[in-house]
């Protein structure tokens, strides 16, 4: 491995790994958003709220059950809880609004994000919450050259590809995935061959929101769970989706990679303005590829 150090210092390498673990969270959330945008054509602003709700649910499950079992339970329970919330929203509100203009849908989903934000405040309060890192993943692993790297981040790096492959399988190899691909292109035709498009949409919506909840549950042990984490994340997720190409899951992965890496390496280059670099990357990408890096499904 020593040859790497000739052009990359250990500091840069460890920062790349930090960026990659951030990428995983961004990818999981953004792929859900992309799925919803691609199939349902809803720019879902409250996706970030669902991510926040996922993190808060993970906190509750962890503090009720406790220990490692609590963490694993949270990892399954929180996304399912978020999925149920989104199912209720979709069946109760969204299914009547599919034909509206984008700008209306954006404002509508923003309204829901306001409501969810306050509901979270009512249920969990406004204080910072912290979720303990499970015993298994406590401590550090020595990276190349003995740099310590949090074991939990290793777990995140493992989860990213798992989710990506599961999504690929879901979209390309299952019946619901194929139907949803068809519905993304021509929803009337899909309805004409006798498929209940409304329920296909509901399923895709719930899957996308499930991913938001999963992202929230995964990120919970690494950050302080707090109100307002939705607003900063959703804008990043949107930019990733736009950068990658609307509705394209691999585009979301690519976008998340660019976003995560520019974020973590930007801090090395210019600590004060580190947060500027991802936005610069988005601008550069959109200047040269106005409709995103990969083909969008629109």
């Amino acid at each position: 491995m020593d040859f790497i150090y000739t052009f990359l210092s250990p500091g840069v390498l460890s920062q790349i790994f930090v960026g990659l673990s951030r990428t995983v969270i961004l990818f999981i959330v953004a792929s859900g958003l992309s799925l919803i945008l691609g199939v349902l054509r809803i720019p879902n602003v409250f996706h970030g709220s669902l991510y926040m709700i996922g993190a808060f649910m993970a906190y509750t499950i962890c503090s009720v059950v406790g220990g490692d079992a609590g963490f694993w339970l949270a990892l399954i329970g929180a996304p399912i809880g978020v999925g149920l919330v989104s199912l209720a929203t979709e069946r109760g509100l969204f299914q009547y609004l599919y034909e509206r203009e984008h700008i209306m849908l954006i404002l509508f989903t923003f309204a829901i994000s306001l409501v969810f934000g306050d509901l979270v405040k009512i249920v969990w309060g406004a204080e910072y919450k912290s979720v303990p890192v499970p015993q298994v993943f406590q401590g550090f692993v020595p990276l190349f050259g003995g740099l310590p790297f949090p074991r939990y981040n290793m777990f995140l790096l493992f989860m990213g590809p798992v989710v990506a492959i599961a999504l690929w399988f879901l979209v390309n190899k299952t019946k619901i995935g194929k139907i949803s691909q068809a519905a993304a292109v021509d929803r009337e035709m899909v309805g004409a061959v006798g498929i209940n498009v409304s329920w296909v949409f509901a399923t895709v919506f719930v899957i996308g929101c499930f991913l938001a909840g999963l992202g929230g549950a995964l990120v919970a042990p690494t950050v302080s769970v707090t109100l307002g984490m939705d607003h900063s994340l959703i804008i990043e997720a949107f930019l990733i989706v736009i950068m990658g190409g609307l509705g394209n899951i691999w585009g979301a992965l690519l976008g998340a990679l660019i976003f995560g890496l520019t974020q973590s390496l930007g801090i090395l280059i210019w600590p004060q303005f580190g947060i500027v670099f991802p936005y610069l990357a988005v601008i550069v990408v959109l200047l040269f590829r106005p409709t995103g890096l990969l083909k969008s499904t629109w």
Binding site: L93, L107, F108, F110, A111, I112, S113, L114, V115, G117, D118, L119, K121, I122
Partner: peptide, 11 residues
């Protein structure tokens, strides 16, 4: 919780 109220009005 005024944002809750605003959100509902807006919806």
């Amino acid at each position: 919780y005024w944002a809750l109220f605003l959100g509902i009005v807006l919806m």
